[in-house]
Computed example of a mutant assay.
Amino acid sequence: MAKIRAFFILALLFLSSSFFLQVARSQSDLDAEADAELVAETVEEGSHVSDDIQDIGFGNFNPAPGVETVCVFPKNSAKSVVAGQETELLVGMKNEGEQSIKVIAVHASVHLPFDHRMLVQNLSTMAFNNASVPASVQATFPYIFAVSKFLQPGTFDLVGTIVYEIDQLPYQNTFYNGTIEVTEAGGLVSVETVFLVSLGLALLVLLGLWVRTQLQSLSKKTKKITKVEVGTRTVDASMDEWLQGTAYTQSQSNKLKKKK
């Protein structure tokens, strides 16, 4: 019974973790929608992505005061990235300062999740020509990247940076510093799928153990033999007819003769 209770507790933990996973996902979707509202597509006319990607050297610049950035993965709240295929994200910039911002480029890199010093891949740099964000205006800038098709599936950290100038002074903001899930091309198996399959197998094993325990307890009950005490009883007269002529009747007649 202790094992059955332990399995029940384990199943409850699995169910509760699945519930919180769904809640966290819903909350993530709500946050993405809220960020999407902030990321308004108000890029100034004439701003466009450069066809010739320049090799821009990124320094360790500080963010400018009054400049806020957000990141949205359109229709991809799980932040799933297929190795070797292009993935798009939107970088939102809000200028609450008094001067116009000149956007230079967007860059990103992939790192190991447990140690950011371990660089996995430098992603492409997307430069912008004539892209500016006036004071008290918010704008959206697309960024398309692709991780190496040889990158092993798993969880990695993506660090995205946008570089800009204010009054010819360079600044940069980290618009995203979080995890992404890299999957193989054409792969249908995800972490959530593995979790749900494991949960189903655990519940099936639990049910099988419970049924087996019930059958064993039922078979033990049926094997119990009730003891019946046998006392003195009278011999029915009809039984004498069956004993006529046997040694039993002869011995009984001899006893009667001796008594006489």
Results as ranks from 00 to 15, higher is better:
Gln168Met: 09
Gln152His: 03
Lys221Ile: 13
Pro153Gly: 02
Ala135Tyr: 03
Leu196His: 11
Ala131Tyr: 03
Pro134Lys: 13
Glu165Leu: 14
Phe141Val: 08
Ile162Asp: 01
Asn130Ala: 05
Leu218Trp: 10
Tyr171His: 14
Leu207Trp: 08
Gln172Phe: 06
Val103Cys: 01
Thr155Ala: 00
Ala131Met: 05
Arg212Ala: 06
Tyr143Met: 11
Thr155Val: 15
Val137Gln: 13
Val197Met: 08
Glu88Cys: 12
Pro113Ala: 09
Glu192Pro: 00
Asp167Phe: 05
Gly160Cys: 06
Gln152Pro: 00
Gly160Arg: 00
Glu165Gly: 08
Leu196Cys: 02
Pro170Tyr: 04
Tyr176Glu: 13
Gly154Lys: 01
Ala139Pro: 12
Val81Lys: 02
Arg212Asp: 00
Phe156Thr: 02
Val191His: 08
Phe150Gln: 09
Phe141Tyr: 13
Val133Glu: 01
Val163Thr: 03
Glu165Thr: 08
Thr193Asp: 03
Leu218Ala: 12
Phe145Thr: 04
Ser132Arg: 10
Val194Tyr: 05
Lys79Phe: 09
Gln99Lys: 15
Gln168Cys: 08
Pro153Arg: 04
Gln121Ser: 11
Thr213Met: 14
Leu201Ile: 09
Phe195Trp: 09
Ser109Tyr: 10
Gly92Ile: 01
Leu151Ser: 01
Thr174Asn: 13
Ser219Asp: 06
Val182Lys: 13
Leu123Val: 04
Leu188Gln: 09
Gly97Asn: 07
Glu192Arg: 15
Leu158Met: 03
Lys102Trp: 00
Asn122Arg: 04
Leu158Glu: 02
Val182Thr: 06
Ser100Ile: 11
Val103Gln: 07
Thr183Ala: 06
Lys221Leu: 15
Lys102Ser: 08
Val147Asp: 01
Leu112Gln: 09
Gln214His: 11
Ile104Val: 12
Ser109Phe: 12
His107Ile: 04
Ala78Cys: 05
Val159Lys: 02
Gln138Ile: 07
Phe156His: 02
Lys220Val: 12
Leu204Ile: 11
Ser198Phe: 05
Leu196Phe: 11
Glu88Pro: 00
Leu119Lys: 08
Thr125Lys: 05
Ile104Thr: 04
Leu90Ile: 14
Gln216Trp: 01
Leu112Glu: 14
Val82Tyr: 06
Ser136Leu: 12
Val91Arg: 08
Ala131Cys: 13
Ser132Asp: 10
Ser100Phe: 01
Val82Leu: 10
Trp210Arg: 09
Ala185Phe: 09
